[in-house]
């Protein structure tokens, strides 16, 4: 099967890319192509113009900048998985990238594409939500930064305007002693789309409680934060009772659909199990649990 016809631009600078996006109606960025090419081949999409962002140097790589971890939008999932900086500051993102698709897909797929595509099951989304990440957007007319929990609007719908590119994802370096983990359940043990996924990040105890983030994937039209579950843990000791309450809250915050991969009932059950499992070792590994 062939791909629909399109024009392909391969700009080498960001400004050039933004100009094309601004001036060509219907133009769409292409990064790794692992989502876009599949959709085009299936004739679900046929954009007239593609803008390949792969030659823009500045868009890839992981760096530290002013107390923040900054990941260029065109950084591949494989690069993030292998990155020492990421392993050091956000092991939950390393884990998520390790469980993402297959090695060959990871070598092409980018984090920007994963977020922009806005699948409810996007595997980097729960870790990024748990890390309080924000999304850097640029267009010919300006730049803005959107917190990731406001970025996703619905299935495949985001805050991003058509003329904008995601240039980077950034998040504050988590405080010393923060623990984070990610898990996903798929219908097979490798190369599977998440039936549900979850990420937690728990900060060290501090005055007035602790920073708790619990984020879920594939259980609502967008990846979500389970805020009531977070509250159940933010004050008081994290014991078995608190963990069960958090798991229960997370399940009730989800609004999953029934589809080929699982019923809404199963997804809720799975969230309970995942959240419990993510929390227990986090707690066991620390003194205040």
């Amino acid at each position: 099967m062939t791909l629909p016809k399109f024009e392909l631009h391969r700009p080498e600078s960001l400004d050039e890319a933004l100009d094309i996006l601004a001036s060509s109606p219907g133009a769409v960025p292409i990064a790794g192509g692992t989502a876009l090419i599949v959709d085009m081949r299936g004739r679900r999409l046929s954009p007239p113009v593609l803008v390949d962002i792969g030659l823009i140097d500045r868009l890839s790589g992981v760096r530290i900048e002013g107390g923040e971890v900054v990941i260029g939008a065109a950084t591949t999932i494989a690069e993030i998985k292998e990155s020492d900086l990421i392993a050091q500051h956000s092991p939950l993102l390393s884990e998520a990238c390790g469980l993402f698709a297959s090695p060959s897909v990871r070598n092409r797929a980018t984090i920007g594409g994963n977020i922009a595509y806005a699948s409810p099951a996007a595997d980097t989304a729960p870790p990024l939500l748990a890390l309080d990440a924000s999304v850097e957007l640029a267009s010919a007319s300006g730049r803005r930064t959107v917190p990731i929990d406001r970025f996703f609007l619905g299935v495949r719908r985001t805050e991003r305007r058509d003329d904008e590119l995601i240039t980077a994802i950034r998040f504050p370096i988590p405080a010393e002693g923060t623990e984070g983990r990610f898990r996903k359940l798929g219908l097979r043990r490798a190369d599977a789309i998440s039936v549900v996924s979850a990420a937690v990040s728990i900060g060290p105890p501090a005055d007035g409680g602790r920073r708790v983030r619990i984020a879920l994937g594939a259980v609502a039209p967008t990846p979500i934060r389970a805020r009531r579950a977070e509250e159940a843990l933010s004050a008081g000791p994290i014991d078995e009772g608190a963990i069960l309450a958090a798991a229960e809250a997370a399940a009730s915050e989800a609004s999953p659909v029934s589809d080929l991969r699982g019923s809404d009932w199963y997804r809720r059950e799975a969230i309970r199990a995942l959240v419990r499992r993510l929390l227990r070792p986090v707690v066991e590994g620390r003194s205040d649990g």
Partner: peptide, 16 residues
């Protein structure tokens, strides 16, 4: 058919 390709019809991988 609800499982029209190898993305929906899952066959075992090397890890299963």
């Amino acid at each position: 058919t609800q499982t029209p390709s190898l993305a929906e019809y899952l066959v075992p991988t090397s890890c299963d």
